[in-house]
Each structure stands twice: as structure tokens, then as C-alpha cells.
Amino acid sequence: MRINRVIAAAAASLIAATGLVACSSETETTSSSNGDAVTVKIGTTDADQKAWSVFADEAQKAGIDLDIVRFSEYPQVNPAQSEGQIEISKFQTINYQAQYNATSGKDLRIIGSGEINVLGLYWKDHDSIDGIEGEEVAIPNDPSNQGRAINVLVQAGLLTLRDGAPTLTPTPADIDKDASKVKVVAVDASQTPNAYNEGRPAIINNNWLQRAGIDPSTSVAADDPNSELAEPYINVFTVSGDDLDNQTYEKLVDVWQSPEVTAALDEDSNGTAVQVQRSKEELNEILDRLVEEYK
């Protein structure tokens, strides 16, 4: 199944219409308690994307001025949040947040969901997985993508996991080779487009798809955003536990899910981003399950 088919099928149920590198306010408005706009300090690694510009505009219409704190690397953001340098963040998946909570002993929480970026299997000059049996598939070797890549192949019926293997965070060692139709080789994510160009099947994440100029619609298989196996890869809004019921932050989640931001997100991702609407209770249940796996 191609990514564009997966997105079309998922859209009906999912789409809604350590330190700082730089800290700069996108507006000059300050917080107010008399009905004027309220300023929220939000951290992200994606501030240069069109979706964030639209997000800031739409938030302002809703009475919220975003003070966007720009980070250059993922590992900087959660510690800044834990130390109170930002109020809320939007940059990470549930899986990434779970790893941070498990290793740091912190308990950052999720106040709402954003999008999931569909991950696909690509095979040059093929439009299906027919004939792929016996092939060696290149997958990213980083912890954030390796387990998910394996699960893409599990969902496609190409890999079988050993009994007792972790369902959400499998590694190559968890694969039942005798029961599987393909083999995997874990490589640096930057090398997956090279494998594709050499004629080998490869799981390629969206950043490297764009850099390599590979059309996302040409995938021969992809994960299903509705699947439980994809849940760890939902991008989320993160807050401290004390702010879990903050109505202003909940309003920001609604703004992100707006048609205007969704359209910009679709443009940024070349059509691979699908908005997900899940309750904060569901999202935090997923988070807690993953934290236990990582401990």
C-alpha cells in the first residue's frame, strides 16, 4: 500500500479540519489577565517550517501570542522544559518523550496530539511488494526509527517477531528469521536512500526522502496511522504535570489541528503528515506503557 493510500484511508478518522540555542519572542505582547492576548513560551526544533508560521498566526487570532523558543537539537528541549525555561513544547513523538522520562526520572506529560508522519518502504522501479521475498531491506539503525521500521515490515506481512518480543520497540534480534519473508540490515538513516538507489528495498524516513528527492507517493508499503504499532510515533504537545489541565495550552492543541495549520503541515511534509486526534488520557497511557518498556 502506498503512503498516499494510507493517508487517504486514515484521514477520515484522524485529520482535524543541555541549553537554548536562541530564545526570541515572535511578538512583543505580554501576558494579561484582563482579556487581552496571553503570551505562551513554546519550544520547538521546527520553527522554520511553514506550519509554525501559520500556527502562530492562528494562535494570535485565538488570543494567544506565541513566544517561540528555537532549539537546534532534540536533546536540548526536554531539559529546558523540566527546568521551567519554556512552558510547553511541540517537537517530539511519544516514543522520544518516553525515553527521556525513563532515563531522566522526570515525568513530563502530554496535553494533546499533533500529527504522525507516515513511514514507508521504498523499492526502486517497483509499485508493490510482489517478488520481494528473499530481499535484504535496509532500515535506519537509530533507536527512534529502527523499531518502527521493523513494524512497518511486520504490518506488511514481511517480518515475523519471536514470541515474547517487545511489540512497540523491537530490534533485529527480535526477528524470527525462519518465519520471515525478508532480511533486514540496519544502516545509518542517511544511507537508506543510497540502498534504494542501488535497487535494494529500504525504509526511508521523511527527512531523507526530501533530501534525496524521492516521491513519498511511490512507497510500496507504509505503516497505518490507525494501528497500535504506530501510536508511539504520534507527535505531541508536552507540558509539566502541573499544567495538564491548562486551558490555554489545550486551546493551542486545537489551533494546531485547525484546517489552516493542517494544510501547511501537509505542504511541509509533502503529504506524509496525518493529523491525529487522541485524548490526553489515551496519550498519557501510551506514554506510561513505553516508559515501563524503557526502564
Rank of each mutant, 00 (worst) to 15 (best):
Q191P: 10
P143I: 10
I175A: 03
G131I: 02
H126T: 07
D188N: 10
I88G: 04
D127H: 00
A98C: 15
S89M: 14
P193Q: 06
A189K: 15
I94T: 15
W123M: 00
E87L: 07
G164H: 12
I86R: 05
V185F: 00
K177A: 12
E136S: 14
Q85F: 06
F91S: 09
E87Y: 07
Y96M: 14
N117D: 15
Y100D: 12
F91P: 02
Y122F: 09
D188H: 04
A138P: 12
A165N: 05
E136K: 11
G131H: 01
A189V: 08
A173Q: 05
N145P: 02
D188F: 06
V137S: 02
D163N: 14
A156H: 05
T169C: 02
A156L: 06
S104M: 00
P140C: 10
T192Y: 09
A165H: 02
A189E: 10
A173G: 07
K90L: 09
Q191R: 15
I94M: 11
Q99P: 04
G112W: 04
K124N: 12
D163E: 15
A179P: 03
S180F: 01
T169R: 09
R109E: 08
P140Q: 06
D127M: 00
L153E: 13
D130R: 12
I110C: 03
L119A: 08
R148G: 08
I150C: 03
L161M: 09
N194F: 14
G120R: 08
A149V: 06
I88K: 04
E135F: 04
S190M: 04
I88Q: 10
V154Q: 02
D163K: 15
N194C: 11
I132L: 13
L153R: 09
Q97W: 14
L153I: 11
S190L: 09
R162M: 06
I150N: 06
L161V: 04
L161K: 14
Y100M: 08
Q85K: 13
P172D: 01
V187W: 11
I111S: 08
G112N: 04
T171E: 14
L119V: 12
S89F: 13
L159P: 02
P166R: 12
D130P: 02
H126M: 04
D174H: 07
G114F: 09
T103I: 06
N101G: 12
T103V: 10
S190A: 12
V118E: 06
S89R: 15
D178W: 02
V184Q: 05
I86H: 04
G147K: 11
L119M: 12
N141T: 11
V185P: 03
N197S: 13
Q155W: 00
L158T: 00
V154Y: 03
K183F: 11
A186C: 07
W123Q: 01
I175E: 03
V152Q: 02
K90S: 08
E135R: 10
P172M: 01
A195H: 07
T160E: 15
A186S: 12
Y196H: 00
R109L: 07
V152Y: 01
A98S: 15
A186K: 06
L119E: 08
A156D: 08
Q97E: 13
T169Y: 02
S128A: 14
T167G: 05
A173D: 11
D130L: 06
Q155F: 01
T192H: 05
